[in-house]
Design a binder for these strands. Structure first.
Lengths: 123, 123
DNA sequence: GACGTCGGTAACTGCAACGTAACCGGGGCG
DNA sequence: CGCCCCGGTTACGTTGCAGTTACCGACGTC
């Protein structure tokens, strides 16, 4: 067991949930963040990503595997076990992702204020 | 007239077209890039963004205006004239966008190779 | 009077994303 | 026997995004 994933990515206070950037599809960025500290099993990923159905998580993981961002390792055991880990290529995404998340953390309130102003002007 | 927009953003060689990142929606990032050098009219934006329908471009611009990224200025003239310009907040996005585009420029071939490998393993 | 310009909007259509629920194998366990 | 475990797959329905087409007003031009 590596360290737990303490963050709730769906917390409205979490900038990653409000970033205007996305990686690939809607969930791929969050999956990469969940893998940052080490390999995870399918069902471990489902805990922090509880808003994602198994189907969509499986599709997201296969897309990331296809693009060389993660590796999928199946162990021939009972009960079956599979884990997913970042590749070196996947790790190269973090600087860019961090820049996006930093932008969101810094400017989120400005965006929300702009939306309020816009709504009031329309009203 | 400011300088023209020479790049074809849909050129397969253009990394911005292959970035796994998006800003907001599918087109917003490209619109911001097109506005980087100065204000543009609606129909000027349609030239480099010729793959976007007028409807979607209008929706994208309104979303960016709502979020305080661009300003819309309508001149009461005949024929009507409207232009769009980046706000200071919109300009703050460029460092993060540049990080994303740099990632794509650097790693695009690796992603394409990974896809080829994946397709061959599946075949 | 017909047509073009500019910056859109409205209505319709198709399709991809996403969610839900059921089901799978192959063993362990009560 | 019957049910649980894990890591999914399959079928099916809904939602929302994107594209196409047609149309608008107010004026200039042929």
């Amino acid at each position: 067991m590596i360290s737990p994933l303490p963050r709730d990515l769906f917390d409205p206070a979490c900038p990653s949930n409000a970033t205007p950037f996305q990686i690939g599809d809607k969930w791929a960025g969050m999956v990469l963040v969940c893998l940052e500290e080490g390999p995870r099993r399918f069902s471990e990923l489902r805990v922090p990503l509880h808003r994602v159905s198994a189907k969509v998580l499986a599709e997201t993981l296969r897309a990331l595997e296809r693009d060389g961002m993660v590796t999928r390792t199946a162990y021939d055991e009972v009960p079956p076990r599979v884990d997913y880990a970042l590749t070196p290529l996947g790790r190269t995404l973090f600087p860019a992702m961090d820049a996006c998340r930093a932008w969101a953390a810094e400017h989120l309130t400005e965006v929300l204020d702009a939306r309020d102003d816009y709504a009031r002007r329309g009203a």
